[in-house]
Amino acid sequence: MRHMPEYAIEASNLRRIYKTKERELIALGGVDLTVRPGELFGLLGPNGAGKTTLIKILTTLLLPSSGTAKVWGFDVVQDSLQVRRHINMVSGGESSGYGLLTVRENLWMFSQFYGLDSKAARKRIDELLEIVGLADRAGTKVSHLSTGLRQKMNFCRGLLSDPEVLFLDEPTLGLDVEAARTLRLYTRRWVDEGQGKTVLLTTHYMQEADELCDRVAIINRGQILACDTPAALKRRLQDEVVFRLHTTPVNGTLSQELEALGGVRRLTMRQLDGQSELNLILADDNILGGVLGRISEHNASLISLEKRQPTLEDVFVALVGHGLEEAEERQ
């Protein structure tokens, strides 16, 4: 019977500051977080929010400036070797791998770093390659693989050691829809069937976090702003209404005017091809009339109007004050 700690991941007032000659950058500003064994936990935030820094600390690749963190009950600084015995990690959007080795050789090599018996490793490699649809490329040199296929191989590498806690850092970045779906489905299955197997997933794809995760923490500028189940996070906006409007092109002045309107909780605007998109969180339906009036005053025409259910993007906007894309631009 394997030992199961109360928390698979535990961070307390975790801070990380990068110092350069010119300035200090606070990547993590006092993160408190607990993830239970068996959870598929999502960390949602824009690029530069601190997601990867947090993962690096939890995987013992980076030391925190202050605070403590434990993974599978072991301190990431004091017991880093014990931590490493229970974890693995897959990062997306990179073309890592030894190009001169075949897919199978790359995976076998890593199985040895985790002390797997060669025969057992080969069996596991075959199983994983089959799952991600890479079995027919087992003998292909990694340098001949596309980024997507390399990512699938890296996913296999992460699961090879059958870790207690798997860290997935933007695992579907750069993958085609089908490949991303395969990895998501298998991740979910791995957690559901794993009896305590835990995943911490970072993503800036709202839909991915919404569909996949048991709980989600929204992180921005090194701070966790909210942490709950996707449904509970969205319920925070149940007293409000969410609209998406498409209009003929309008400028930023309208946006400022609308934000000043009573009852407009949050607004994001972006320019699309020949039209403007406005996402609005309103106190109630009655505010919409005033919004449409202002649009009309700016000589803009309404192209489409959609009242929709709140998404995690809306939750993010409500918490941060702007959308994910804008947050990335600002950072």
Binding site: T59, T60, L61, L81, R84, R85, I87, N88, M89, S91, E94, S95, S96, G97, Y98, G99, F110, Q112, F113, Y114, G115, R157, S161
Partner: peptide
């Protein structure tokens, strides 16, 4: 070049031995 040092570093075996 390979982007693999981090993955080797977080494995339980010794980086020095490697």
């Amino acid at each position: 070049r390979m982007g693999m040092l981090k993955y080797i570093s977080l494995a339980p075996s010794s980086l020095y031995a490697y």
